[in-house]
Simulated assay, not measured.
Amino acid sequence: MTTQFPPIDRDKSHLTAVDEEAVRLADVLEDHPDTSGVTDAGAAGDIVFTAAGRTWVLDFQSGPDGEVFQNPTGAAPAPANAPAADVLRDVVIPALLAHPAYLAATADDDTLTVHLATGRHYTLTLTPAA
């Protein structure tokens, strides 16, 4: 005998789209072999994890229209060479690209741009935890 669970009613969910995406990002990073200590996503969408011997915070950023998720735009930023960029390039981007929900991810210094398979994108900044 199996128990049937009712489908999730998105209208009644207490999670926003940003919260849901932060939880998914935290899960993806938690599964990556080069990260450890991933916390669950905070209310503001912050994701804290340990990589390359330091603790980092990924934080969602608002776009030019004030929205976190933006519509598709033109060129993606070119990768840079800085400590945060190294962690984004070597740890975060490979973890995301291994998941089917993410079409592309690029790093520009301490900024990560994530392109979803749905065609939308958003940006995050990576900073060392205090």
Rank of each mutant, 00 (worst) to 15 (best):
S36R: 03
N81C: 09
V87P: 03
E67Q: 09
D9Q: 10
F5Q: 07
T2M: 12
L15S: 01
A44D: 15
A17Y: 00
A95W: 15
A82L: 08
A105I: 14
P33S: 06
A75Y: 04
A85C: 02
P33Q: 10
H115A: 03
A98L: 14
A117V: 14
D19A: 13
W56F: 00
E20L: 15
F49Y: 14
P83W: 09
I47E: 07
V28N: 01
E21S: 07
D11K: 10
E30C: 04
Q4F: 04
I47H: 06
A17Q: 07
A85H: 02
A78G: 01
A84G: 07
P64C: 04
I93F: 09
H99T: 07
P83F: 08
D34K: 12
G74D: 15
D59C: 05
L126E: 08
L103S: 11
T16I: 10
T125Q: 13
G45P: 02
T16C: 04
P7K: 11
V68I: 14
V28W: 00
A117K: 13
G66D: 02
D27S: 12
K12W: 04
A43R: 15
A117G: 03
P94A: 12
Y102N: 10
A101Y: 01
D86T: 01
T3L: 08
D31G: 09
P79R: 03
D86N: 03
P64E: 09
T50R: 15
D11N: 11
A41M: 01
W56T: 04
E20Q: 14
A44K: 15
L25F: 10
A26E: 00
F60M: 03
L25A: 05
D110W: 02
S62Y: 01
L25V: 11
R89H: 06
E30Y: 05
T111M: 07
R10T: 08
P6L: 13
G42L: 12
A76C: 05
P6G: 09
G74N: 12
G42P: 01
N81E: 12
A22E: 03
L103F: 11
A98E: 15
L29A: 06
T125M: 08
L97E: 06
D46H: 05
T35Q: 05
F49T: 12
R54T: 05
V91M: 05
Y122G: 01
S13I: 10
V92E: 00
G63R: 05
T106C: 03
V87L: 12
F49D: 11
G45D: 05
E30I: 02
A75M: 01
